[in-house]
Design a protein around this nucleic acid. Structure first.
Length: 910
RNA sequence: GCGCACGUGGCGGAAUGGUAGACGCGCUGGCUUCAGGUGCCAGUGUCCGCAAGGGCGUGGAGGUUCGAAUCCUCUCGUGCGCACCA
């Protein structure tokens, strides 16, 4: 403290002392230990016990990956927000569950292990403890008894258990739910693996998968970017036929789409999930050909009469059989070129190239012989890999037809005369045969009529297809959950029974690199675990006496742990069950009949809109079907927080310079070391030299100031730039609040027991009312603005009555809990503020005897009147028309109309 | 190309169709200080004016309305998502 007269000022040093003292006290007293209905966490000593009968409220953050780089100021944004909500709900009397775990499997730890030779667990645990320290200093009200990491052997055990539940179940399409595989065995009357394994929700299959040599592993579709590269590391990805584990997420396509209606999520995320699943309704239609029926999928069966040719994907299995001798060479050449193109090249070229096969197919609705082509704009991976081409109704077909001189037959009145395809609504024309006519119908009517006709003639069926593919679930990594699967000499996978110790990762002494040159197409996946013969070969007694088995050597993707962790928070130490049903249903169960249930508030970034959030919903639904959870959805309400961005600066060579040392000039330019630099806006990162850490904020301002600043920067869901120099404003605010209670020179209490004057009391109750509304809508920036206004008001008026200071401190508590606890104690309260009741506004105290009335003339404000709130329309009109400035603005013109919204507005039209 | 957001002072951002710019940063002036910093007080959209007051202002152009940042149409720009999905 540099100023001797202000020994008791709320400085960063004092804030730090207060904050750490309260953090210790919360920990030793178990303040945030939340009671469970049953089990080891049922009884708590702390103050949370008094909320045990309150309404339950389960909040979650998207848990962090414990990266070695530690946290920057952007990371805690969501954690502070959930903490504010949690602390607010506790003060409302809710029983709040809030804890934080760590998503600890992942590639960075494995790469670090490879480069250092140190076991990834060592580095990961060190990172977790560093992150814990950084987060503890923030004062988050977490129940630390419920924290875990996905690498904990107890947690892994349950991840493996869930895998086996999925492995041992099948999807009953009629009942629209998963059922135990034993019921399928009973139903089919066989336990032959060749039959049964086909139906498992987790299954091994040889199919085209994404092979990424650069990472040395296969990847899920969701992990591959549109450019055909890995989301992590940006390495090229190749399609390869490999035998891998898959999860039958496609069985849940409809439920994953339909149940989006039952959750409170941002539309943007819902739309992304719907697009990703990509459901389209249409029909499959068979076109007769010399090689047998060629089946196509179409969403527009109503345009069948306009199908003037067919196009197969170059990889379509019937291509050879349908190729005539004189086209054989051209077809082979086209297929060769198509095969050599990467996915990206195929997508980039929009030219409608293609080759005639030389044979024809029969359009089933009119018997016409139409030519068959192959073209690479038709993809083998969607629908049936073959289309009927309707150039009048599909722009791609139109372009192809124009290119190759093929007939274009309009089937929509709206398309006639257009120089392009017409895909909208309208009236069908040119569409009839001897048995059925679609002419004059709308698109929807025509669709159902033609599908009915096709079905009656066995020429086609109504059909729904999806873009979603099954989830590729195995990885060739060391640092992931091992599969609880072994093999004997007869190939089919064998589940390790529950009572046998599940496979733990072997302690491998070294981690040889297992990736390949990024473009090495010839390379093959090679699971690191397979090199460890001692681990791979294991003697087990699975019922037929002790025998040697080989373990599955692939590991699970790092999405596994995050696909079910919400369940474990409810009962983290349960050794017998995933979670006791009484705990699970209390915290996650539906709040009302027919509800989907789930976490009450889940806050995290947009980047998981598809990946994590889709996988977690899928696993949760399987567990629901199998009776292990009472909730159908894992997350009832989702909120995407924005990101804290930062400026970075490059010098003339393009190298990043330390952002902290850059000087801004009045003309909008920036210099570093006197030399001009360029500013760019984006992420915070070590390599960009613009990282600001929470630790720096704790040192310079304290955790409370940092929390208030992050919450007051703007709406939570909007991204915005970090500005360290603006943090001071939040500190000034807290200093003013402090000064209301504590004399900066003597440290003595400054508040009094005097009652408030009516005007200030009115201000207070108005503020309480407004702040409550803002809190309910998570508009923390405006809630804080209201608190600052109240503080400034009482500071200016020199009011120091506890009647206003106490509610102010209470409302401040969710944002700045440490200073609030400290002041609450100084105000003479013993019990701590975390569970003190949130202030309630009394409308009787809100007085408003006069209000400013605005007088508009032709929409422009021309005068203001101080009037009583209950002024009558007539009175107000008279007052307004008499106001000198208004008279001047009317300028003698006749008044045509007066609109009065008493008491706030009069609008005069002349 | 398609879809969804979003464009407000020097900056971050406030505004149930009704006083545009709450709150904060910055800036200017003052007090405090040997000084720097911290703190406190006052001012701060822009143009004209000593003032009273007035003109112009929410990316741009139209429209609806007594009244539009807010609703509608078009347009420009930025961000995000999807992308030959039949």
């Amino acid at each position: 403290m540099t100023n001797p007269t202000h020994d008791f000022r709320y400085t960063s040093e004092l804030a730090g002392q207060i904050e750490m003292a309260w953090q210790d006290r919360w920990e030793t007293e178990g303040t945030f230990h939340t009671p469970n209905p049953v089990g080891d966490l049922a009884n708590v000593d702390g103050p949370a016990a008094k909320n045990a009968d309150g309404s339950k409220y389960f909040i979650m953050d998207m848990f962090p990956y414990p990266s070695g780089a530690g946290l920057h100021v952007g990371h805690p944004l969501g954690y502070i927000a959930t903490d504010v909500v949690g602390r607010y709900r506790r003060m409302l009397g809710d029983n709040v569950l809030h804890a934080l775990g760590y998503d600890a499997y992942g590639l960075p730890a494995e790469l670090h292990a490879i480069s250092t030779g140190e076991h990834p667990r060592v580095n990961t645990l060190a990172n977790i403890s560093n992150m814990r320290r950084q987060l503890r200093r923030l004062g988050l009200a977490h129940d630390d008894r419920r924290s875990f990491a996905t690498i904990d052997s107890e947690f892994v055990r349950w991840t493996q258990w869930i895998f086996l539940q999925i492995f041992n179940s099948w999807y009953d399409a009629e009942a629209k739910r998963a059922r135990p595989i034993s019921e399928l065995i009973e139903k089919l009357g066989t336990d032959d693996p060749a039959v049964i394994d086909e139906h498992r929700l987790a299954y091994l299959s040889e199919s085209p998968v994404n092979w990424c040599p650069g990472l040395g592993t296969v990847l899920a579709n969701e992990e591959v970017t549109a450019e055909g590269r890995s989301e992590r590391g940006n390495f090229p990805v190749f399609r390869r036929n490999l035998k891998q584990w898959q999860m039958r997420i496609t069985a849940y396509s409809d439920r994953l789409i339909d149940d989006l209606e039952r959750v409170d999520w941002p539309d943007a995320v819902k739309i992304m999930q719907r697009n990703w699943i990509g459901r389209s309704h249409g029909a499959e239609v068979d076109f007769a050909s010399e090689a047998g029926p060629v089946r196509v999928f179409t969403t527009r069966p109503d345009t069948l009469f306009g199908a003037t040719f067919m196009v197969l994907s170059p990889e379509h299995p019937l291509v050879e059989a349908l190729t005539s001798a004189d086209q054989a060479e051209a077809v082979a050449e086209y297929r060769r070129i198509a095969a050599a193109k990467t996915e990206l090249e195929r997508q980039e070229s929009r030219e409608k190239t293609g080759v005639r096969l030389g044979s024809t197919a029969t359009n089933p609705v009119n018997g016409e012989q139409i030519p068959i082509f192959i073209a690479d704009y038709v993809l083998m991976g969607y629908g049936t890999g073959a289309i009927m081409a309707v150039p009048s109704g599909d722009q791609r077909d139109f372009e192809f037809a124009t290119e190759h001189g093929l007939p274009i037959v309009p089937t929509m009145a709206e398309q006639v005369g257009l120089a392009e395809a017409y895909a909208g609504e309208g009236t069908i024309i040119n569409s009839s045969n001897d048995e059925v006519s679609l002419d004059g119908l709308s698109v929807d009517e025509a669709k159902s009529r033609i599908v009915a006709w096709l079905e009656s003639k066995s020429l086609g069926t109504g059909k729904t297809t999806y873009r979603l593919r099954d989830w590729l679930f195995s990885r060739q990594r060391y640092w992931g959950e091992p599969f609880p699967i072994v093999y004997d000499e007869t190939a089919p996978p064998i589940a390790l029974p529950d009572d046998l110790p599940a496979a733990e990762s072997p302690e491998v002494p070294d981690f040889p690199p297992n990736s390949f040159a990024p473009d090495d197409v010839e390379s093959n996946p090679e699971p690191p675990l397979s090199r460890n013969e001692d681990w791979v070969n294991v003697e087990l007694d699975l019922g037929d006496g002790p025998k040697m088995y080989r373990r599955e050597t692939n590991t699970m993707p790092n999405w596994a742990g995050s696909s079910w962790y919400e369940i474990r928070y409810t009962d983290p130490n349960n050794a017998e069950l995933l979670a006791d049903p009484r705990n699970e249903s209390y915290w996650l169960g539906p709040r009302s009949e027919g509800g989907a249930g789930g976490v009450d508030l889940y806050i995290g970034g947009m980047e998981h809109a598809v990946l994590h959030l889709l996988y977690a919903r899928f696993w949760h639904k399987v567990l629901f079907d199998l009776g292990h959870v009472s909730s159908e959805e894992p997350f009832q309400k989702l909120f995407n927080q924005g990101y804290i961005q930062a400026y970075a600066y490059t010098d003339e060579r393009g190298a990043y310079v330390v952002a902290d040392e850059v000087v801004a000039h009045e003309d909008g330019t920036f210099t570093h070391d006197g030399k001009p630099v360029n500013r760019e806006y984006g992420k915070m990162g070590k390599s960009l030299k613009n990282v600001v850490t929470p630790d720096e904020m704790y040192d310079s301002y304290g955790a409370d100031t940092f929390r208030v600043y992050e919450m007051s920067m703007g709406p939570l869901d909007v991204s915005r730039p970090w500005e360290t120099r603006a943090v001071i404003g939040s500190q000034r605010f807290l200093q003013r609040v402090w000064r209301l209670c504590v004399d900066e020179t003597t440290g003595e209490a400054t508040f009094t027991d005097e009652p408030l004057e009516a005007a200030t009391r009115s201000e207070l109750h108005r503020t309480i009312e407004q702040v409550r509304v803002e809190m309910e809508h998570m508009r923390f920036n405006t809630a804080i603005a209201r608190l600052i206004e109240l503080t400034n008001h009482v500071t200016k008026e020199n009011v120091s009555s506890r009647e206003v200071i106490e509610p102010l401190v209470l409302m401040l508590a969710p944002f700045a809990p440490h200073i609030a606890e400290e002041l609450w104690q100084r105000l003479g309260h013993e019990g701590g503020i975390a569970f003190a009741p949130y202030p309630v506004s009394n409308p009787d105290f809100i007085i408003q005897d006069s209000v400013t009335c605005v007088v508009q003339v032709l929409g422009k404000v021309r005068g203001r009147l101080e009037v009583s709130v209950d002024v009558s329309d007539e009175e107000l009109t008279a007052l307004a028309l008499a106001e000198p400035n208004v008279v001047k603005a009317i300028d003698g013109r006749p008044v045509r109309k007066v609109i009065v919204k008493a008491p706030k507005l009069v609008s005069i039209v002349v």
